[in-house]
Design a protein around this nucleic acid. Structure first.
Lengths: 323, 323
DNA sequence: AGAGAGTATGACAACGTTGTCCAGCCGGTG
DNA sequence: CACCGGCTGGACAACGTTGTCATACTCTCT
C-alpha cells in the first residue's frame, strides 16, 4: 500500500480510502490510485485489515469427523455455500474421531480468530471452549451435543428414528430383530440403540443381548456379523442396521445367501434405490441439518445473545418394502 | 498479551518469548507467565503473529467444483490431511463451475495470504493469477490444467482411459458405440471424448455424430438419452458413459428395459459393484491425484523453483463384464 | 469580506505480535 | 580491580492496514 501511495503520489490513507470505496476522494485522484494498484498488482491484505479495524475475519471454522464421508461433505458444502453469501470463507478440518486432535484443531481455529465454530463433536469434554465463547467466538454443535458446555446444538431425532424403524418391523410380526451398530462410544449410536430398545420394550419384547452387535465399523464386518447371527440357533428374522455402511454390508450378505430376513437401515444414501433389494431406510435431511446449524451460528455472530437452543430435526421412515 | 504481561509483572516481549517457547527465559519467570496465560485464557493471535513475523499464514486454499461431490470431497480430505501434518489448515470453497465466482474466490484467498492454492479450474483464463504467483503464492492445478498460465498441473489420463474403454468394446465386436457426456465445455470431457474418437478411428470406425450425446448432466437425462438412442433405426449396441452420474442413469435404463447393450463407464464409484448389473469402469486413484498435487504444492511452498510440471496419472480399466 | 458548512487530503497512532538491539547482571579471567 | 562474555529482560520499531483528528480548500450566505 505504501508503494501504491508513492507511485500515485498520494498518502497512504487516500489509497486506503480508494481501495475500500470510501467517499471523499476526487475522481482524478482515485483514478491515479487505481492505476497504481493495477500496475503494481496490489491486493489488500485481509488479515492486516481485520487486525487493525478489529473487524471479524470473515472466516468460520468447521470441525467434522471426516471430510470424505458424504454426510459430512454435504454439511461442509451447505455451510460453505451459506458462508459465501456473507463473503465468508470456511476453514474445515477433520477430527477423525480423535478428541485430542479435535481440541487441537479447535484451538488452532480460535487462534486464527474465526468468527464462529461449527463442530461435530468427537471429544468428551468441551469445557475448554468456555473461554473462547466468552471472548466472543460462538460455537454451534452439529449432529451431536457438546459435553460440559452450554451451547447451541442442532441434532437429529436419532432415538425417534430408530424407534419408528423397529416399530415397523414389529408391526410386520418380527420379534427377533438383530441390531448392528458402529460403536456405543458415539452419542448418535447410543441414541439410536436406545430408540430401538424402547420400541422393543413398547412392544413387550424383552432385551436379548445376543441380538445386538457393537463394533461393526465397515461393510465387511457387517456382512460377517449378519452371517454369524443367521447361523445361530434362534436367528433373527429382521435386522436394524444403525448406519449406511452397515446397511450396505448387511444387504450384500442377505442378498448373497438369498435370505428373506427383513431389513431397516438408518441413513439413506445416494444409490440406495439401486441396491439389489429395495431398502427401507430411516432418512433425514442432512442439508437442513447443516442449514439450521449454520443459520444459528450466523445469528450468534450477528449478536444473538439469547439462551442456547437445542434443535432436533425429525427423521423420516422411507418405506421401500422390508425384503 | 499486554494484559498477560501486566498480570505476570513482566514485559510484553518476555510473554512473547514464553508463548513461543524461545530460550533465555528463567524458569520462575516462565512459570509466572504461564500462570497468567492460564488465568486470562490468553490465546496468541495467529494472524497478528504471521503479519508481524512475515511468516506464512499456515493456510492453503482449495478451490473445487462442489464440495458435496465425492470426487472433490475426497480431494479435500486428502489435502486437509496432508496439510494437517504440517500444521496447516485448509480454506476450501466451491466454484460451482462459475468462472466469475472462481476468480472472486481466488482473489479472496490471495487477499487472505494463503501459502498456496490448489485449484480445479472452472474458468477459461487464469492469467490474473500471474501476479499472485510472482508475489510468491504458488498455484497447482488439479484434474484440469489452468488456462493462459504456466503452472503445475496434476491430471488424469482421460484420453487414454476413454481410449482403452472403447478399445475393449471394439474388441468385443461392437461398432456402434453411443457416447454420453456432460459437457464439451469441460476440459475433462473433451479429453475423454477425444480418446474415445481416437480409439474408434484406430479401429477404422468412422465418426457418427448421432452416437454422441452432449449435455447429459444427471442420471435422469442419461436414462432418457439411452432410451432415445435405443429407439433409433440403427441403435448402438454399446455405450460409453463419460462420468459416473451418467453411468448410473444409463445402467438404470438398460436394466429397466432388459437391454443387452454393453456398457463401459468412466469413473468408479462407491457402490458400483452392487449395481443391478456388473459394471466395467475406467477407474483412477482420486486420493493419489490429490496426494501428488498437494505434495507438489508443498514442495513449491518450501521453495522449489524448478520449471512447472505436468503430472498425468494413469487410469485403470476395471473389467467386471460388459453386460 | 467574513463566517459557517462541507469536502478533500494527510499525519499519526493503533490493532497484536515479534525482530532487533541495548542494558544490566552474573561469574570468571588477566 | 577492571574487563569480558554469556545470559536475561525490556524498550522500541515494525508488519499492513484503518480510525481519528487536524488541516486546507471550496462554496454559500449574509
Amino acid at each position: 500500500m505504501v508503494d501504491v501511495a508513492r507511485l500515485a503520489g498520494v498518502s497512504l490513507k487516500t489509497v486506503s480510502r480508494v481501495v475500500n470505496g470510501e467517499p471523499h476522494v476526487q475522481r482524478a485522484m482515485a483514478d491515479r490510485v487505481l492505476a497504481a494498484v493495477a500496475e503494481l498488482g496490489f491486493q489488500r491484505n485481509h488479515m492486516a485489515s481485520a487486525l487493525r479495524a478489529g473487524r471479524p475475519s470473515a472466516t468460520i471454522g468447521l470441525i467434522i469427523e471426516e471430510l470424505a464421508n458424504p454426510f459430512y461433505s454435504t454439511i461442509a458444502h451447505v455451510t460453505a455455500e451459506m458462508a459465501r453469501e456473507r463473503d465468508t470463507l470456511l476453514l474445515s478440518a477433520s477430527s477423525e474421531e480423535d478428541p485430542g486432535r479435535e481440541e487441537q484443531l479447535l484451538r488452532d481455529l480460535c487462534s486464527r480468530r474465526v468468527d464462529g465454530l461449527l463442530v461435530v463433536p468427537a471429544g468428551c469434554d468441551h469445557s475448554f471452549l468456555h473461554g473462547q465463547m466468552e471472548l466472543g467466538i460462538p460455537v454451534v454443535f452439529l449432529d451431536r451435543p457438546g459435553t460440559n458446555i452450554d451451547a447451541d446444538a442442532v441434532l437429529l431425532d436419532n432415538r425417534g428414528g430408530a424407534h419408528s424403524g423397529v416399530r415397523r418391523l414389529v408391526e410386520q410380526g418380527h420379534r427377533r430383530i438383530g441390531v448392528l451398530l458402529d460403536s456405543v462410544d458415539v452419542h448418535t449410536m447410543r441414541e439410536r440403540l436406545a430408540g430401538a430398545q424402547e420400541a422393543l420394550a413398547d412392544a413387550g419384547i424383552g432385551y436379548d443381548g445376543s441380538l445386538v452387535r457393537d463394533g461393526v465399523r465397515d461393510p465387511a464386518t457387517a456382512a460377517t456379523a449378519v452371517a454369524e447371527m443367521l447361523a445361530e440357533p434362534h436367528p433373527p428374522t429382521a435386522f436394524l442396521t444403525l448406519n449406511n455402511r452397515i446397511t450396505v454390508g448387511a444387504v450384500q450378505e442377505l442378498w448373497r445367501r438369498g435370505s428373506d430376513a427383513a431389513l431397516v437401515g438408518f441413513d439413506d444414501f445416494e444409490l440406495s434405490h439401486l441396491m439389489p433389494r429395495p431398502l427401507t431406510v430411516i432418512a433425514y435431511d442432512t442439508r437442513e441439518l447443516a442449514r439450521r446449524a449454520t443459520q444459528l451460528l450466523f445469528d450468534r455472530i450477528d449478536g444473538d445473545r439469547s439462551r442456547p437452543r437445542t434443535i432436533v430435526l425429525p427423521t423420516d421412515l422411507v418405506d421401500r418394502g422390508l425384503r
